[in-house]
Structures are given as structure tokens and as C-alpha cells.
Design a protein around this nucleic acid. Structure first.
Lengths: 246, 246
DNA sequence: GAGTGGTCTAGACCACTGG
DNA sequence: CAGTGGTCTAGACCACTCC
């Protein structure tokens, strides 16, 4: 029997099984059969529906994932991606305000926070001598309950005495302004698509090979002093970067 | 026979076959056994070397691809990724200069160029009434011989009479300045990770499901008039975006 | 025409989630 | 503990590239 004989949808168009599955599932999504954060049927069910194997079905799911149409949660299943968040990394970061302005529900969890000897890369970013000390705050941030961002903040200790005693679940931007009189000035950011490092994939409960958007922000205050830097790992289907120059 | 009995490297550490393969191959690359744009051995050879199946081997290659460590050319094989290009989308685009400054060899091919009725999305970007006419230039750009960017330029016809008669393989930026006295001013750009559309994947000869970085730039001139927009599709392992605010 | 990657089949066991 | 996704086996044919 030729391999491509029967499978679903191919009676009409001579296309690949994987393509046919992608079109069918994205049709469900665009036509509203499935909506944001809905869970897809189990892989075995789907592979049966499409008269194919799980391997082939997973190939199709992987492509929809790459398009940002669906996402997966480790060992829990596949879900329909919600709309992307519009993010301007040049603006003074304000995760909660940004999310709320776009009609979404933000949430922040502090994984841990402490004073540490800065890794060399961080010293370079913050213009500190090697072996300098920094506050390190690791947080997970959610949109509508879905963990989308793992971030490590490294703060120059000189500017923020006793900040670890503060409530770190809210906006650092506000804390800087209200408690220390420090406002964000110039920002530099670097961004590259890659995969999650282990710490991030565990915190976000995604497969450790999932694609991610890695963004480094180096922030200065109103006097152009480097005050902190952020290493941000975003689920890569959550963001729409939008930047307007001055 | 238990599935995980023999495969390569697992005698020492109890890790997944896929992980072991990824580590081995990335070791070859970091240790210089393979360098930029070198071709990897055939999949069948590799799967034999690692005592596994092609499916499993391809899973590993897919992960290295997601990390940006290797890339593939449709039906030709797998290759070691060269270093990323550093790109600041806020700067007046200048592909050739950018590449040369970073010690790379740029190259541009014009696929086609003509005057067309602008799609609605383009009219919105250029602030034109629906059905407005634009020049459309489609190009493929290479770095060190590797096709990395498929771009569609849409120019407001009012600003660039007879531009289609010019040499379009070189920099549009220079052409604008030298021939029309138009310089880039403010830029807006939007960026989202997704996959290549068909036209782009064919032009770049990549699998049509490959991940891509989709960047839209809307460019104004020195008088803040919108003069053109670019739809850029980059191989996503080629770029390191770096932006410094004013 | 030989060899390569692209696609697909038809199963299996394991580790974890969630009731 | 049932069910799910994660991982893996051992093959096969096709379409294309390159010699």
C-alpha cells in the first residue's frame, strides 16, 4: 500500500498529511470552535481522527507551535495561544500596567531574591568590577494565569539599600520611584531568539527545548547611571515587539 | 528489550538519547571539529554513530536548530550556523554596510520589482487610501553566500518616480539620498517570531515550516513623511537585535 | 543513478498529571 | 490508577540534489 493513500483530506488536494492537519486545526481556531487557552483533544484522539500516527500528528502540532498558534504545557497537553502582548522594550518596563492596558490579567511570583557575587557577564553589563555584589531577584510573570516570562533582575546594590525587605511582587519601576527617587532613563536592549535555559523552562513548566525570546535590558536612571539589568526569557509566542523611535 | 537499554553515552549518565546527541554535536562545534557553514554528516550516518533511529536523531537536530546552533537547507543537509549579525532596526537600514562592518560578505538579489495596487495592509502602513499604487521590490539578501533575508519593500510612488529603472541590487538608502534627496528620519518597527510564508521559504530555500523573525519597518523621511515600508523575514538564527534608545 | 533529506507507518514503554 | 504526553524503535517510500 502506498504510504500516502488514504489519509484525511487528501482526496481533494494532493497535499501532505501534516499540512492538512495544520489547516484543519487552525480552521477550528479561526472559526471559533476552539478559543484562547482551550485545550486540544488528546494526541491519540487527534491522530485517530486524522487517520494518521502520533508521530505525524506531533509534527503538525510542532508546526502550529512554531507559528505561535498553539502552545504546550509540559505533560499537560496542547492549548490555543491567546493574542500576543504588545511590548515596547524601550519604554520603562511596567509589566502590570502594560498587561492591564491591553485588557489582560497580570500576575507576578517571586521565586527568590538575595545578594550575590555577580557573574562576570552581569558585571560587564552593570559596569561593575569583577566580583562585585548585586541583588538578584528571580521572578515568574503570568498573563491571564499563563506563565509567559521568566526574568532575572540584577540590581546595583549601591542604589537600592534594603530593597529585599520590600514587596517584590509588584512593579520594581514603582518601587524605584517611590522608595528611592530613581526613575528610568535611557534603555538598551538586546534580543535573540533561542531556547529556554534549564532554570527558565522549569520555572515556566515548558519543555526545556522550547523556543524562547531572550531579551537583555540594561537600564539607566535619570542621570544616565546604570542601575540594573534584566535577563528576560519570554515564551516566544506571547510577544509582539513594537518600537517607535524618538 | 527495554527501549533505553543501549543507546550511546547513557552508560555514564542517565540522560535522554536526544540530549546526549545534542551535547555531542554541540561539542564538535564548540571544540572546532566543525566550523561555520560546515556540513554535518548524513542523517543515516549520524543515527548509526549514535546507535539510534533517524527519527530520534532528527529530534536532536531540531533542538540544535531551535537553539540557533545549526541550520538546514531544504534537501541539502544540516550546517553549522555562523555567528549572528548584530542589527539595530532603528538605524537607517543599510544591509551591505552593516554586514561589512562586521566582517561579513553581503549580497543582494532582486527577485522582481514593479508597480502594483497596494494590499490593504500596506495602504494602512503607508497612510494611503485603499487601492493606492506602490512600487513593490522583492529581494533576497545573503551573508557569506547564505540566504538569510527575504524582504518586500513597498514604496510610496509619489516620492520615487522612475526608481524601477535604477540598479536595485544596491542600497535603497543610498539611492533615496543620492537620486531623490530623501533621507531616513523616524522609524517604527514591529517584530514577531513566527514561521516563513510560502514566498519567503521558497526564495530562501528553507522548509516552509521553519521558524522566522518577521520584522515590519515603517520609514519616514527627514520631514516625517512616510516614504516606504519593509516586510522582512529573517532566518531566525541570523540575528542579534540590539537597540540603544536616544 | 546513487545518495540525501522529507515524510510516514505501527507499534512500544516510561514519567508524570490529575481525579 | 487511568490517561496523557515524552521518548524511542525499526523499518518504508518519495522527491530532490548532485555527481
Amino acid at each position: 500500500m502506498p504510504q500516502n493513500d488514504a489519509p484525511f483530506l487528501q482526496s481533494l488536494s494532493r497535499q501532505k498529511t501534516v499540512t492538512a492537519i495544520c489547516q484543519a486545526i487552525s480552521g477550528w481556531i479561526t472559526q471559533g470552535v476552539l478559543t484562547h487557552n482551550d485545550r486540544l483533544p488528546a494526541e491519540r484522539i487527534l491522530s485517530e481522527q486524522f487517520a494518521t500516527t502520533r508521530i505525524t500528528l506531533r509534527e503538525a502540532l510542532g508546526q502550529l507551535e512554531a507559528q505561535g498558534m498553539i502552545y504546550r504545557e509540559e505533560r499537560r497537553g496542547w492549548f490555543v495561544s491567546p493574542p500576543r502582548i504588545i511590548y515596547n522594550p524601550l519604554q520603562r518596563s511596567h509589566f502590570h500596567a502594560m498587561a492591564r492596558e491591553q485588557g489582560r490579567k497580570p500576575d507576578t511570583e517571586v521565586l527568590d531574591a538575595g545578594e550575590i557575587v555577580a557573574p562576570d557577564a552581569i558585571c560587564a553589563h552593570l559596569d561593575l568590577p569583577a566580583g562585585g555584589r548585586v541583588f538578584c531577584i528571580r521572578r515568574v510573570r503570568r498573563i491571564d494565569g499563563r506563565a509567559v516570562l521568566y526574568v532575572e533582575h540584577y540590581l546595583n546594590v549601591a542604589f537600592f539599600p534594603a530593597i529585599l525587605q520590600e514587596d517584590l511582587t509588584s512593579s520594581l519601576t514603582e518601587l524605584y520611584a517611590n522608595r528611592y527617587g530613581i526613575r528610568y532613563g535611557k534603555v538598551r536592549f538586546d534580543m535573540l531568539p533561542t531556547t529556554f535555559p534549564l532554570a527558565a523552562s522549569q520555572a515556566l513548566k515548558v519543555a526545556d527545548n522550547s523556543p524562547a525570546l531572550f531579551i537583555t535590558r540594561i537600564n539607566r536612571d535619570q542621570y544616565a547611571r546604570i542601575i540594573d539589568c534584566d535577563l528576560e526569557y519570554w515564551r516566544y509566542d506571547t510577544l509582539h515587539i513594537s518600537v517607535e523611535a524618538e
